[in-house]
Amino acid sequence: MASPRREQRRVGGSERIGLYTLLRLERGGLEAGLPGQFFMLDVPGHIMPRPFSICLAEKDELAFLINPVGPATRVLCELERGQKIGLFGPLGNGFRTDVKRPLLVGGGIGVAPFPYAAQVMGNPPVVLGFRTARQAEAAQLVPKAEVCIEPQLVTELIPGVPMDVLACGPEPMLHAVHALVPDAQLAWEAPMACGFGACYGCVVELDGKSRRLCVEGPVLNGRPPALPLIDDEEEEAEA
């Protein structure tokens, strides 16, 4: 697995896609990791870095899709070409992508990891649900996506045949997907201050135990937990 690195990178561009912003950063040798893994992005004027899924990985560029829900995400959406920010990753456990009957299921900003996942997996079927048509513009980032807008729910687009589901979206959606497809790989969210197991801020209840989502997730039912997150230098050299 790719070893996480902390680097400063220049903003290569920033585009509005409906309500969200696609922030493109120069890649400069950074590993993209697996779909569903995330980076901690430093936010100018803020103390805590914030976690974001890898949305697109091109040869020269890593891109993140950002929903402006609060102060830090608003700053990231306003970054301009040429500004530099720090980023640290790839972190956490991503999706298992070597599945037989893949179906990607996204809700709202939960579409973020799927452009990269679709690329890695050779454009599998995708269903996406959004609250508004403006949000749904983000579906253009994923080829062949079937889209619904509330009141229709994305779980209604999941076919009644067995499929290997990879899902990302708001908590109620993930619970609904889990009820329909118990072995689905689900990407969860929790507030994070470090992203590498140091702060215990991201703890969630998992099988009755409190666990750090940045260590054991964010994708659960996916890859087995991997420790350590920050490898030894020797191991890094091997990776």
Partner: peptide, 17 residues
């Protein structure tokens, strides 16, 4: 098992946990 979520909040000059 620790305290309920959310466990982290940023403030102007520091971090609250």
């Amino acid at each position: 098992s620790g305290n309920p979520q959310p466990r982290l909040a940023e403030t102007d000059f520091g971090l609250l946990n």
